[in-house]
């Protein structure tokens, strides 16, 4: 019941956003961003509404949503932890951070911890390359991140860490 109510609220919010954005030139990306900002992801159930409003096919909407790494098709955890995998961070040992996070959270990239606290995601450059290795927790950027710093961040985000 709760779930149904939530979906109805979500549906109304999406209808409102579609109405707000549909006349904008090149509206699809701004609209998808607005939906994801509001609901945390792009529910597949809204593809038809979007397609109709923008005179697209459902397949086209699906194609755009899945082309871009930023758009999520499932509800992420309460916090998203992005670890930079690009060259500059590799040169400063990001592979160790990556392995540590996966082990402690007991998940791989693009997965969410069982308690829904953290979704782990790779990212290819955060523009903090002079202070590599870098990670981003939600929209907060961190530089020169050590294993201890990463532990502190994961704990702050409410993760229950597996023994490393």
């Amino acid at each position: 019941m709760q779930d149904l109510q939530e979906k109805q609220v979500q549906g109304k919010e999406i209808d409102r956003l579609v109405a707000q954005y549909k006349s904008m030139p090149g509206a699809l990306l701004p609209l998808l961003h607005a939906i994801q900002d509001s609901t945390g992801f792009i529910p597949e159930t809204c593809y038809a509404t979007i397609a109709q409003a923008l005179s697209l096919s459902v397949a086209e909407v699906h194609g755009v949503v899945t082309f871009y790494h930023h758009f999520k098709t499932h509800q992420p955890g309460q916090h998203v932890l992005q670890i930079c995998r690009a060259e500059s961070c590799q040169a400063m040992g990001s592979a160790n951070l990556e392995a540590h996070a996966k082990k402690c959270l007991n998940i791989d990239y693009h997965q969410t911890t069982d308690d829904r606290a953290i979704t782990l995601a790779p990212v290819y450059c955060l523009g903090n390359c002079a202070l590599s290795p870098a990670v981003m927790l939600d929209e907060e950027l961190y530089g020169r991140v050590s294993i201890a710093d990463l532990d502190a961040l994961m704990l702050e985000a409410g993760a229950s860490l597996a023994k490393a």
């Binding site: 701004p30 755009v64 930023h70």
Partner: peptide, 25 residues
């Protein structure tokens, strides 16, 4: 300002234009 969506290839100018038009890059 238009937000991109995490596709490296959209730094290529024609792919960027496709993206700005609301399409796959």
């Amino acid at each position: 300002v238009r937000r991109a969506a995490g596709a490296y290839v959209c730094g290529e100018e024609t792919s960027l234009l496709e993206s700005l038009e609301g399409k796959r890059g």
